[in-house]
Amino acid sequence: MVAFTRGDYVCENESVIISANDVKKYAETSNDFNAIHLDFQSAVEAGFEREIVHGMLVMGIAESRLSVVFPTSFVVSYETKFLHPVLVGELLTISYVVIDEDLDFITIKIEVTIENGKIAIIGVIQFTNVGG
């Protein structure tokens, strides 16, 4: 599908900072007001350095960039593991590498790296052409 082969980077690495306001908006949309995302003191009491981003917000943003690269395709599967918390306001680097492709499908590995160089989220997403 499209002009990619295994091992290709689908697009340049994405640099993302998720702000407290982004997290607040996601909390309102998803109705997830868990205090570890919104309140510094609660996050610290739960053992985090400061407020952490909803895993689902990072997962969603990671897919949003690809959604523009494959604008008319449809996602048949998307899975992620949340390995490390992502802190509000920290710089994230997201990479997208093709791990499989054929006529109808393309499978991409997604890695979200946090400031200390650790991988916070690892994921695999598969797109297919509509009716393909």
């Binding site: 205090a35 570890i36 997962m59 449809f74 998307y78 899975e79 992620t80 593991k81 949340f82």
Partner: peptide, 15 residues
């Protein structure tokens, strides 16, 4: 107590 999200998977048979 807060629940931590460890893994998430979506699978679609149709959009």
């Amino acid at each position: 107590v807060p629940l931590i999200h460890g893994e998430q998977k979506f699978n679609y048979l149709k959009p």
